[in-house]
Nucleic acid binder design. Sequence first.
DNA 1: TAGATTGTTAATCGATTAACAATC
DNA 2: TAGATTGTTAATCGATTAACAATC
Lengths: 235, 235
Amino acid sequence: MMDSEHNLNTENEIERPQVSPAVIRRLPRYFRYLRELIREGKMRISSGELSERMNVTASQIRQDLNCFGGFGQQGYGYNVNYLYAKICDLLGVSAGLSAIIIGAGDLGRALTRSTMFEKRGVDIIAMFDVDENLIGKTIGDVLVYSMNDLESFFETHTVDMAVLTLPKDQAAVEAERLLELGVKGFWNFTGKELSYASRAIVENVHLGDSLMFLNYDICRLKEAEEKTEAGSDRV
Amino acid sequence: MMDSEHNLNTENEIERPQVSPAVIRRLPRYFRYLRELIREGKMRISSGELSERMNVTASQIRQDLNCFGGFGQQGYGYNVNYLYAKICDLLGVSAGLSAIIIGAGDLGRALTRSTMFEKRGVDIIAMFDVDENLIGKTIGDVLVYSMNDLESFFETHTVDMAVLTLPKDQAAVEAERLLELGVKGFWNFTGKELSYASRAIVENVHLGDSLMFLNYDICRLKEAEEKTEAGSDRV
DNA sequence: TAGATTGTTAATCGATTAACAATC
DNA sequence: TAGATTGTTAATCGATTAACAATC
């Protein structure tokens, strides 16, 4: 089941799978559907059945999962709990990752109060803001610190990632500061596109882009409707 | 400049460009960079220069823009204002699209108060919720209506899209209700994956998936670091 | 005109799907 | 054993990049 050829090299130099981002971006979706299957009490699932639920090809599912090893069994399919556990591993659900949220504005507060992090094994250990009225307060069950205390906070805490929900024009300078303190990843909602090559990992979120994609399709739909109407009862 | 071959068919059957989603998903990013260029007062830009800023190939830029017509000029490049106007058109920035927000929770409020919609020409005309304490209140400058008043609201208003920020378990039933009322598109944050084929357009947003993609990379990075440490000073 | 840069075709690359042998 | 379904290779499809002729 485990590959043998790759391990011929020095000691056991781990085989970096080097899986394409396209595949990795699909993993969270498998994660979601597997949770659902578990909730339903389903014990096993075939790529065929899963493909129907998820609206993708069975081929793709098998191909995707095989990038990480043989999680299934011929003639049987996939054990739901086992597969779920494997995907959780890949996505670090039990890795005990810690996060801080920079910016206790509307979005920062919404994210803090959501169950999103908890469900994915990420622990929000603090929020930071410059607003004197917020500092010392608790949002959800997370304490808001002053941005001035960032450095001292890092002396006593390990922080894997920072969620950036602060104003766009401060994004770059604060991110640099966090980088200096050893943050490994940024979940960046500021709209300012950040990129630190090998120094840190950045996931830039552009909600506005998603909105505009929808806009595009709605416009095309409206155009088509106008055309139809014009064709049916105009001049 | 305008294509001639496609227009040989009946009357002028509009040429549906049928551009790939991959290209369309990139348009909002051009939109953002062009805004920046305008802010900087730049009048013209070549695909080469833009490609450096955006970190994509010049080839891709020219290919993308050409899906919608010849927006540039040989030997000169692209007129920033003209190109911006064209992309705004495609993305419906001046189409006067209207939206309502279903669910006045943390996320709904955060979206309402943001400038995201305004910047993209989408008008939020109402919010809806079931919470008696919120109904009648104003968030940003948007009034919160009762979910019971949904049908009557539609009698006097045109609604292009609904932003779904309500609890997951109510997503499907309320979306169906909105569909019935003539909503054309859904910006869906509920986590419940919706799909209405030709009846409506759905943009499912899964912030958690984005977080997990980041998790994946951070885990790989941590693994790599542990390996390095182990190699340098262990046993 | 010469220089620059697009529009567009052709070549390459990568991702998805199909097919089937391996195997439970 | 026969049936089912994976793991995996090969074929197809689509998207990206390179190249260059058109043209401003």
